[in-house]
Simulated assay, not measured.
Amino acid sequence: MFVPNTTQDYGDNPIAVRETDTYVSEYVRGFVEKWDELIDWNQRAKSEGRFFIDVLKARGKKSVLDVATGTGFHSVQLLKAGFDVTSVDGSAEMLAKAFENGCNQGVVLKTIHADWRQLNRGVRGKFDAIICLGNSFTHLFDENDRRRALAEFYAALKHDGILILDQRNYDRILDEGFASKHKYYYCGDKVVAEPVHIDEGLARFEYSFPDGSRHNLNMFPLRKDYTRRLLREAGFQKLHSYGDFQEEGEETDPDFFIHVAEKSYGTN
Rank of each mutant, 00 (worst) to 15 (best):
D12F: 14
N13R: 01
P14I: 10
I15N: 07
T20S: 12
L38K: 15
I39L: 06
D40P: 01
A45R: 07
S47T: 03
E48Q: 02
F51W: 07
K61W: 05
A68R: 10
G70H: 08
L79K: 09
A81K: 01
D84W: 01
V85E: 09
S87G: 07
G90H: 08
L95A: 00
A96K: 15
F99S: 01
N101S: 08
G102H: 01
Q105N: 11
G106H: 00
V107I: 07
L109E: 03
H113W: 13
W116G: 00
L119Y: 05
T138C: 11
H139G: 13
E143W: 05
R147N: 11
R148E: 15
A149P: 02
Y154C: 03
Y154R: 01
A155R: 13
I162E: 09
I162C: 11
D171Y: 03
A179Y: 15
H182W: 05
Y184G: 02
Y184F: 14
G188W: 09
I198R: 09
D199G: 02
E200W: 01
F205L: 14
S208Q: 09
P210H: 14
D211R: 03
G212R: 01
S213K: 00
T227M: 15
R229M: 12
R229E: 09
R229N: 07
Q237M: 13
E247M: 08
E247I: 09
E250R: 08
F257T: 00
K263T: 07
S264H: 07
